[in-house]
Design a protein around this nucleic acid. Sequence first.
RNA 1: CGGGGCGUAGCGCAGUUUGGUAGCGCACAUGGUUUGGGACCAUGGGGUCGGAGGUUCAAAUCCUCUCGCCCCGACCA
Length: 579
Amino acid sequence: MRWNKALIPTLKENPSDAEVISHKLMIRAGLIRQLAAGLYSFLPLGWRAMLKSMKIIREEMNAIGGQEIFMPSLNPVEIWKETGRDEDMSEIMLRFTDRKNRDICLAPTHEEIITDIARNEIHSFKDLPQIWYQIQNKFRDEPRARFGLLRVREFLMKDAYSLCANWEQLDEAYKKHEQAYRNIFTRCGLKFVVVGASSGLMGGRQSQEFMVPSDAGEDRTAFCEKCGYAANIEVAKSVPFEVEYKDIPELKKVHTPDLKTVDEVAEFLGLPRNQMLKSLVYIAEKSEKPVMVLLRGDHQLNEEKLSLFLGELVRPAHPDEVLKLFGVPIGFLGPIDAPKEIKILVDEAVPSDKKFATGANDKDYHIVGFTLDDFKIDGRSDFRLVSDGEFCQNCGSPLKVRTTIEIGHIFKLGTKYSAAMGATFLDANGKQIPIIMGSYGIGVGRILSSAIELYADDNGIVWPITIAPFEVIITALDTTKPEISDVAEKLYSRLIESGVDVLYDDRDERAGVKFKDADLIGIPIRITVGRKVKDGMVEIVTRKDKKSEDVKIEDTLAKVLEIRQLLYSELDTQFEENE
RNA sequence: CGGGGCGUAGCGCAGUUUGGUAGCGCACAUGGUUUGGGACCAUGGGGUCGGAGGUUCAAAUCCUCUCGCCCCGACCA
């Protein structure tokens, strides 16, 4: 491509509404332009990087026997009612009615549509297993789109589905996908970890996320650097810090006027924070039942764990709901003398042989010196949020917690969808059973964002060569001089003939402008054709390490091919690190 | 949905407090000088000041409503 004729609108200044690096650079390098909140157009450079990523995805998906299909984005709402997900996803699903007044939605994902195809076309165990995938736009009415392509309302997703006749086949399909995903992200040049995750609204038994560590990420992941344990904070477990307990000789009610927070009361009573119990009240969203969760004062609740335990989503009770239920304001709540209809759950990190203090269910009073035996417990489980520096359950080393970008998520769904929608087949014994499914997603745009977040420097993007919009840029300085443009033109056509993806900067611009732009858009290999042509030389510069080499004009092609090969093989080396 | 910020030329911003009829830098066009890391000089084009209503002799500026974008939180296959 010739820059002179191309749409590559680079910007000198950062856009005012961009916060994270990848967003700023995607705008400045002319990859994308915003249409509205969470809606972006891809310009030529951005789309080329997307196409490169998709090519890698297709190759790896085909390699595990995936068959590419394509499903409609416009869905009748009825099909979503069959699984109940029109309600589960009511907030996030975009809907409208068509001219015949039918309810239509824009698909936020495609399990229901896949299952519909399966129930119509799969009849025998002999038809299984299958892997079907598509690369398609998904639509989600996000409460808050943000960070460029990281959280958007319409986005390209590769979604794959495995259909199996038994659990062994599912395990195999799942493993294949895990390996395919490792291959895909490695080839895209990303650093990532595979973590245990919550399956959330998708349902299912097991799920793992592929995470890129980045400050721009919206998820938090706990890692153990020693043994490799890694889990999304939503499900992560840890061994808490050692703490001291004081002896409390007698059980009594203490007047604590206006003292509400754990810290305030602990200080007033002269107790360590861990000897206070936090009494949190939550409402289960479907059944609308209130629950009280008790945690040590130095711990935090993990809402995901609570909702997993209860089997439905939860939300904190509003202060007025609490007042209605308990007759006391938040801050003086506790399990003792709590209303009978409220379930009481206790985190397993609360020891049963120690004495604690918490609210007395009486305004301006706390109760001090009770144990877990002094009230009825409806459930004990792990409800704690892991915090940085706590210890790994496997090996005891300190865990690190950091933000990550979720680029892929794989699920063992089981029969949630096939059972609900009647997607069954006959097994070898002639018995009708539901298809066992898996679902596997990749956010294509997030691959680009992650790569930029990982490798960008002060001058701009530094693309891994595999997903770079071009592999090589020819920067011809002073194109008005025929001795320069002749050499550049010849190199340009020779590189194209050799199958190199090359951008030719043939603009009549000053050298500084061209160098800055080349750095900004991050093309891995730059050939500078300038004043050295009079000595029969050009320069080859690699973007990521700024290494520059003078090469004879006639050797340029061979040298470029060599460097290109090197850059590709470096990604294979990284592959081993990601293993 | 709650809190905060911002909408003025393609981009980045000043002007709003104190009302007087719109400006700077970049980009763009033309001419000239320059030419290896975002050049310089000159000239020029481009704006219903997000929108609607109101106050006023007069509104980018004051008032009311409304739309949009960004940030924090809530929420989030």
